[in-house]
């Protein structure tokens, strides 16, 4: 039975509801506005009085997905589909690479005692709290020399700064939550290290692994600066590609909004699907049963 909180009087509940509604409007308004914008005509968008009632049209989507007359301005042309594909390739590959390298690392950090263990773990974490702009210039110069500039491989590699620490740290917590005796039992049951890892440890962290991978995907997908500096018009992810709608002559607000909406969709859908596990994934390791 739920304990009746003292905040459950009708008055309190109304106040709480109002506060939450207020925050929801504040947080969601830009999103709603950009969705509305994506369905407006150019005239409606630039109208001096913000328009809430308009005739919706899918012209902007048609233009960015299939091209067409709407892309009238030479300088404003942008290949959104290419950028969206770039985003998919770079982000998914980056997450897969991080899983491949990060899961064994997480296991080692969770289970074994070795020299500099804590220093190594901290170094991983430090990738997360160093601002990206602090490292971007040296990386840019290195990439130019190593011919990694404007390549998928280069971008996938630099995205490890985002995805790898996340996976190592969260998955380490999941491995630590598995009782050592369960793995010892499996060893005595006749399984080698690899057998124990694949048959016991991995299946037990699988739900956590999936949500952590999605989280890493979202962070990587949202990244802007790495693509902007280390990519070029062939390899831009869609976050950077969206800028292409700004030209000397005009800003294609409608198409930009449509591109933004499509870019938001993959992480949004994933986040909704794994919402339940995501919160658990983030608080895991902080709370010990």
């Amino acid at each position: 039975m739920m304990k009746r909180s003292r905040y459950s009087t009708p008055k309190h509940r109304t106040l709480i509801w109002l506060a939450l509604a207020g925050y929801a409007v504040f947080a969601l308004f830009p999103l709603i506005w950009v969705v509305m914008m994506s369905f407006k005509s150019h005239i409606d968008i630039v109208s001096p009085v913000p328009k809430f009632i308009f005739t919706p049209s899918i012209e902007n989507y048609r233009a960015i997905l299939f091209g067409g007359q709407s892309v009238q301005y030479e300088a404003g042309q942008t290949d959104f589909l290419l950028y969206f594909r770039n985003s998919c390739i770079i982000t998914i590959s980056a997450v897969l690479l991080s899983l491949l390298a990060g899961v064994p690392a997480a296991y080692a950090l969770a289970r074994y005692r070795f020299r500099f263990k804590d220093d190594i773990a901290f170094t991983f974490l430090s990738f997360r709290f160093a601002p990206e702009v602090a490292v971007i210039i040296p990386i840019y110069i290195l990439y130019q020399r190593l011919h990694l500039y404007n390549t998928y491989v280069g971008l996938i590699f630099v995205y490890q700064l985002i995805t790898l620490p996340l996976i190592v740290w969260i998955v380490r917590g999941y491995f630590e939550d598995i009782s050592v005796e369960i793995e010892q039992a499996a060893k005595l049951d006749g399984y080698s290290w690899w057998g124990v890892f694949t048959k016991i440890a991995l299946p037990l962290v699988k739900p956590g692994l999936a949500s952590t991978a999605v989280l890493a995907f979202i962070f990587a997908w949202n990244n802007f600066i790495f693509g902007l500096i280390l990519g070029s018009s062939d390899t831009y992810p869609s976050t950077v590609g969206t800028l292409g709608f700004i030209s000397y002559e005009s800003v294609l607000w409608g198409q930009m909004a449509a591109a933004t909406v499509i870019t938001i969709l993959p992480p949004l859908i994933l986040a909704i699907f794994i919402q339940k596990y995501l919160v658990r994934g983030l608080t895991m390791g902080a709370i010990r049963g």
């Binding site: 009782s179 005796e181 369960i182 010892q184 039992a185 499996a186 005595l188 049951d189 016991i200």
Partner: peptide, 10 residues
Amino acid sequence: AMVFESYALY
């Protein structure tokens, strides 16, 4: 074979 205090079931 071993029986663990925590049972250590999978």
